[in-house]
C-alpha cells in the first residue's frame, strides 16, 4: 500500500464523477481499495453528499403563491387608477373653469381674451398690452380669482396623484 493518501479534493472529485473509475488514476484506485483511512474519508463525504442532496427545511409558507399573485395583480392596477383619477381631475377642471368663467365674465370677454393672445396681435406687437388692460379692467379685478381657481385645481390634482401613488406603493410592499 502506498503511503500517500487521497486528498479531500480528489475524493470529492471522485464522488462528483459518480465514482467513475476513470476519475482516479490506477495508483489512486489501488490505494483507495486498501486504505481504511481514505475509505473512511470517502464514507464521510458520501454521507455529507446524501445529506446535502436531501437537505429539506421549512421553506415558503403554503399561501406564498396566492400572496405573490395578489401583489402582481395589484401592481397592474395603479396605471388604471392614475388614468381614471386624471380623467376625473380634467373633468372637474373643465367644469370649474367653465363655471368660474361663466360666473365672472361673459362670452364676449373670453373672445376678447383670445383675441388679445392671438398670434396675429402678438406678431404685430400692436395693442396687446392695451387689449389685456382693457380685458382686465372689464373683469373689474376678478382676474385674481381665476388665477386662484387655477392654482387650487393644480393643488387638488397633486394631492390626488400623491394619494393614488401611496395606495399603489402600499399594495406593492404589503402582502394582501
Amino acid at each position: 500500500m502506498s503511503i500517500k493518501h487521497l486528498s479531500d479534493k480528489r475524493i470529492q472529485e471522485y464522488l462528483d464523477n459518480k465514482l467513475r473509475p476513470e476519475s482516479l488514476s490506477p495508483d489512486e484506485r489501488k490505494h483507495l481499495d486498501s486504505c481504511q483511512l481514505c475509505q473512511g474519508t470517502m464514507a464521510d463525504y458520501s454521507h455529507l453528499y446524501s445529506g446535502l442532496a436531501q437537505e429539506e427545511r421549512q421553506l415558503l409558507s403554503p399561501h406564498f403563491t396566492a400572496r405573490t399573485m395578489a401583489i402582481i395583480r395589484a401592481l397592474e392596477k395603479p396605471a388604471t387608477a392614475i388614468s381614471r383619477s386624471s380623467l376625473f381631475i380634467a373633468f372637474v377642471a373643465v367644469v370649474t373653469i367653465c363655471g368660474v368663467v361663466n360666473y365672472f365674465i361673459n362670452i364676449k370677454d373670453i373672445l376678447y381674451a383670445v383675441e388679445a393672445f392671438s398670434l396675429e396681435r402678438l406678431l404685430s406687437g400692436s395693442a396687446f398690452v392695451s387689449t389685456m388692460e382693457q380685458w382686465s379692467s372689464r373683469l373689474g379685478g376678478n382676474l385674481n380669482i381665476l388665477v386662484f381657481a387655477g392654482l387650487l385645481l393644480i393643488l387638488v390634482g397633486l394631492i390626488d396623484k400623491l394619494l393614488v401613488r401611496q395606495k399603489a406603493n402600499r399594495a406593492y410592499f404589503m402582502s394582501v
Partner: peptide, 21 residues
C-alpha cells in the same frame, strides 16, 4: 393572462427559496 404566472411561481419557488434562504 396574468394568472398563468402562478404556474411559474409554483414551479420555481423552491429554487428561489434555496437561493434566498
Amino acid at each position: 393572462n396574468t394568472d398563468q404566472f402562478g404556474v411559474i411561481i409554483e414551479r420555481y419557488q423552491k429554487l428561489v427559496a434555496h437561493v434566498v434562504f
